[in-house]
C-alpha cells in the first residue's frame, strides 16, 4: 500500500517537473521570438509596454540611503519603530525636494562600502567620517557638513580626567568607526599606553562594557557621547581634548557624481529655505558642529 502511494507521488512529482520544464521552454521560445521578430505586431506592443515602464521607473526614482541604524543622533531606530535621526530627516527632506521615493537601508557599518558597491544602497550617509582612503578608492564624496572630534567617556567616580590617565586602563571603541582608525593610526602612541583596547561591534556594547566595569573608558564621537550622557550627567564625564578632529560627509559610488550633485543641490535648497535649521533644532547636541549653519 505504502509502496504504491510512494510510486504515485513520485510519478506526480516527475510529471509536474516536466510540466515546469515545458512551460519554461515555451517562455524562452517566446522571448527569443520577441527579440528576433521585433517587427511582429504582438512583440512590438510588448516592447512598447516595457519601454513605458522604464520611463515610469525613472520618474519615481527610488533613493536608498545607507545608514548605521545604531548611530544616534544621526541615524537610529525611533520610538515609533521607523528610522530617524538628523541625517535621515535631512535625506528624506532632500528626496522630497527632488521628488524621489525615499528608502532607508541599515548597513553593516564595517562593510558599508562593500554594500554600497553592491547596490544595496545608493549612498552611505550616517555621521560618516570622510577619509582620504575613500577618495583614493574612487568613491564620490560630498562636501563635509559636520565637524566632529573624538572624546573619552568615563564614569564620574573613575578619577580619570585626561587622556594621560588612561595609561594601563581598558578602553572600548567601536569597530569601523573613526575612533578606531585614529587609535590604530595617528593616536597609536596613546593607544600603546592603554592596558587593553577592546573593539566592540556596536556603541551599545561599548557602553555596556563601561557600565559593567569591563572597561574604564569609551573612545567615541563627541555627539554620540553627548546623546548617551544626556539625563545621566551625574554618572558620566566626557573628556574633550579635541582629539582627532574630523569631518562628516556622504559617500556615493564611483560613477555617481550626478547623484552627489543632485543631493548636494537639494540640501543647499533646504539650508536656504530654513528647513535644514528647523531639523537641526531637534538635535541640539550636534547643532553647533554643523558646517552649513555656521
Amino acid at each position: 500500500m505504502k509502496k504504491t502511494l510512494a510510486l504515485i507521488l513520485a510519478a506526480i512529482m516527475v510529471f509536474s517537473l516536466a510540466a515546469c520544464g515545458g512551460q519554461k521552454a515555451a517562455a524562452d521560445e517566446a522571448a527569443a521570438e520577441a527579440v528576433v521578430e521585433a517587427v511582429a505586431e504582438e512583440a512590438y506592443e510588448e516592447g512598447a509596454a516595457d519601454a513605458a515602464e522604464a520611463v515610469e521607473e525613472a520618474a519615481d526614482a527610488k533613493f536608498i540611503m545607507g545608514i548605521d541604524p545604531e548611530y544616534p543622533p544621526f541615524s537610529y531606530l525611533g520610538d515609533d519603530g521607523d528610522y530617524t535621526g538628523f541625517d535621515v530627516e535631512v535625506c528624506k527632506a532632500a528626496c522630497e525636494k527632488l521628488g524621489w521615493e525615499f528608502e532607508v537601508f541599515g548597513v553593516n557599518w564595517d562593510e558599508k562600502l562593500v554594500q554600497l558597491d553592491s547596490n544595496e544602497c545608493d549612498c552611505v550617509w550616517s555621521g560618516m567620517t570622510l577619509l582620504d582612503s575613500m577618495a583614493e578608492a574612487g568613491y564620490v564624496l560630498s562636501a563635509p557638513y559636520y565637524d566632529n572630534t573624538q572624546v573619552v567617556l568615563v564614569k564620574k567616580d573613575s578619577g580619570i580626567t585626561s587622556s594621560e590617565d588612561l595609561a594601563g586602563m581598558a578602553v572600548a571603541v567601536q569597530l569601523g568607526t573613526s575612533g578606531e582608525a585614529l587609535l590604530n593610526g595617528d593616536l597609536a602612541d596613546l593607544t600603546a599606553t592603554f592596558g587593553d583596547l577592546v573593539t566592540c561591534d556596536s556603541f551599545l556594547k561599548c557602553f555596556t562594557e563601561l557600565d559593567g566595569n569591563a572597561v574604564d573608558a569609551v573612545f567615541v564621537d563627541a555627539p554620540v557621547a553627548k546623546a548617551y550622557v544626556e539625563g545621566k550627567e551625574d554618572q558620566y564625564v566626557i573628556i574633550d581634548e579635541g582629539l582627532g578632529a574630523e569631518q562628516y560627509g556622504i559617500a556615493f559610488r564611483a560613477d555617481d557624481q550626478e547623484l552627489c550633485d543632485a543631493i548636494e543641490g537639494a540640501v543647499a535648497e533646504l539650508v536656504a529655505d530654513g528647513t535644514y535649521a528647523k531639523i537641526a533644532d531637534k538635535y541640539p547636541d550636534i547643532k553647533n558642529n554643523l558646517l552649513f549653519l555656521q
Binding site: D110, L113, S133, M134, A137, A172, L175, G176, E180, A181, N184, G185, V198, T199, C200, D201, K205, E209
Partner: peptide, 19 residues
Amino acid sequence: TVSYQEMFTIGKQIANSQT
C-alpha cells in the same frame, strides 16, 4: 559578538582599516 579578539575579529579590523 562580545569583543573577544579572535582571528576573524582581527581580520575584520584589518579589512576595515585597509579597505
